[in-house]
Computed example of a mutant assay.
Amino acid sequence: MSVDVSRAARRLRRQLPDAFRLPTEADPAPEPRHLAAVCAWAAALGLGGMAVALRAFVGLIAQYRPWYAPTVIVIGLVGLACTIGAFASVHHRRLPLALLGAASVSLVAGWIVTGW
């Protein structure tokens, strides 16, 4: 079992730098429609994130729950990291969309957690 884990870790270390790197002059420009889709989706996530942040703020003031603040912060950071990763990998075809999908799941989780 540990052999499989170490093999997967080595493969991940080889693949991550290629997936998340700044483009060079040799890289083709991303397709304009693909870039526009990523930007539109990220903008919608940003607006939804602001709504969740407002609900979280009200929830923090309304009553004290020791689990609430760390949970909301972690959910928000996961969504933010996925959105940033989508822009960092915009030269790939499916990876940005998968990361934005994960950010959308994070947004829905934030909406559920901040519900009163």
Rank of each mutant, 00 (worst) to 15 (best):
I73F: 11
P66E: 00
P32V: 07
L100I: 00
C82I: 10
H34W: 12
V74P: 10
V113C: 05
V108P: 00
A62E: 03
A36P: 00
R93N: 05
G85M: 11
V90A: 07
E31G: 02
H34D: 11
G48L: 08
W41R: 15
V113L: 11
W111V: 11
I75F: 06
G48M: 05
A53C: 14
L47R: 15
P66G: 06
R93K: 06
L80N: 07
A29M: 08
D4L: 15
A86K: 01
L95F: 04
H91S: 03
G48D: 09
A26Q: 11
I112W: 05
H91K: 04
L80E: 05
A29N: 03
W111F: 12
W67D: 12
R33L: 11
L47A: 14
P70M: 00
S6F: 14
A56E: 01
R33M: 05
P32T: 12
A43C: 13
V78K: 04
V58T: 13
V78G: 07
A26F: 06
V78R: 11
I73Y: 06
D4K: 09
A26R: 08
A53I: 08
I75N: 02
L60V: 00
R10K: 12
Y68C: 06
A37K: 13
Q15D: 07
W116M: 12
R10W: 08
R10C: 10
P28F: 10
D4W: 14
D4H: 14
T24E: 10
L54Y: 11
V105E: 03
A40L: 14
S6I: 15
S6L: 15
P17W: 03
P23Q: 02
Y68H: 08
T71I: 04
R65N: 06
V38F: 13
P17N: 12
A29T: 02
A9S: 10
S2L: 15
R21E: 02
R21K: 11
G115C: 10
G59Y: 01
L97P: 01
S106A: 15
F87Q: 03
L47I: 14
V74W: 10
G85W: 09
G110W: 12
S104I: 05
W116I: 15
I112A: 03
G101I: 01
T114V: 13
I112N: 00
L80A: 13
L54D: 09
A69S: 06
I112T: 09
P66F: 01
A103P: 07
H92K: 02
I61N: 01
A36R: 04
V52F: 02
V58Y: 05
I73G: 09
R11A: 15
F20G: 06
I75Q: 03
D27H: 05
